[in-house]
């Protein structure tokens, strides 16, 4: 099976503040994320994991470096295309939910479609079916404020799913939930992942991270561990061995080098 890169990050740097007050939150990050992966970005608070996610999700601009989304260099995109890319390709789940508390559940779920300019009727249908997926079809007329925390997060997942995104970003999705409701939320996220959506979870919860197919550990603005890179190393080694039999050694060497570089960073 050939793996497509959905996110390709090269030499990513993010600096907050200026001159003497400058703080380097991300230091020359390289990271490739493949279609259908479930990636946990792990790290303590202040490690840079949230910054990394914000940059991957194009919510913030990097100081330098490139982020390619499905092969398109986002740093070269104009605001309009960037907005459209976020609107169509991404789904967001936040720890603090971020809902419009006085709007109904349905209205909250319809928001991305409203922004996309989807027709009213289609919007309702899609939102209803997304709410069905998270088991809240009975609550569509409730005010978002009147829901429990777990229900709120499920509404947020419905909102993230409604535009059928290729990537879902979840920032501490269970951070504000007890373990029982958290499990439900996690199940929903991984269900979406099974159907082919790439899942990127930012968390400090090791148990949650273990559920993901790949763990990326961030510390002091650098990636200190990437299980995907190991997998990749293995895969490239296997490929190299296979190739050795047929092809010249030059190609294999260079590809191993890139893999090593990725692991180091």
């Amino acid at each position: 099976m050939e793996m497509n890169k959905v996110i390709e990050v090269k030499n990513l740097v993010k600096v907050y503040g200026k001159r003497s007050a400058a703080f380097k939150a991300l230091k020359n990050i390289d990271l490739d994320i493949y279609e259908g992966e479930s990636v946990a970005i792990i790290g303590k608070s202040g490690s840079g994991k949230s910054t990394l996610m914000h940059l991957l999700a194009l919510l913030d601009k990097p100081t330098s470096g490139t982020i390619k989304i499905e092969g398109v260099d986002s740093t070269k995109l104009r605001a309009r295309k960037l907005n459209r890319l976020r609107n169509r390709s991404f789904g967001f789940v936040f720890q603090q939910f971020f809902m419009n508390p006085n709007d109904t559940v349905l209205e909250n779920v319809m928001l991305p479609l409203k922004i996309a300019g989807t027709k009213r009727k289609a919007r309702r249908e899609l939102a209803k079916s997304a709410l069905k997926t998270v088991g809240l079809e009975e609550r569509i007329k409730f005010k978002a404020n009147d829901l429990s925390g777990g229900q709120k997060q499920r509404v947020c997942i419905a909102r993230a799913l409604v535009n059928n995104p290729s990537i879902i970003f979840a920032d501490e999705p269970t951070g504000n939930l007890d373990s029982a409701t958290g499990d439900k939320v996690i199940k929903l996220l991984f269900n979406a992942n099974k159907k082919g959506t790439t899942l990127i979870i930012v968390t400090h919860d090791e148990d949650l991270a273990k559920l993901c197919s790949r763990q990326v550990r961030v510390m002091d603005g650098k990636i200190v561990e990437d299980t995907g890179a190991k997998e990749l190393k293995k895969a490239t080694r296997a490929a190299a061995k296979a190739a050795k039999a047929t092809k010249s050694t030059k190609d294999t060497k260079s590809s191993t080098k890139t893999a090593k570089k990725g692991a180091k960073a």
Partner: peptide
């Protein structure tokens, strides 16, 4: 926050 959410979900300035 609402403005932030709108913008995160792709609403233009």
């Amino acid at each position: 926050r609402e403005i932030g959410l709108d913008k995160a979900l792709g609403m233009s300035s």
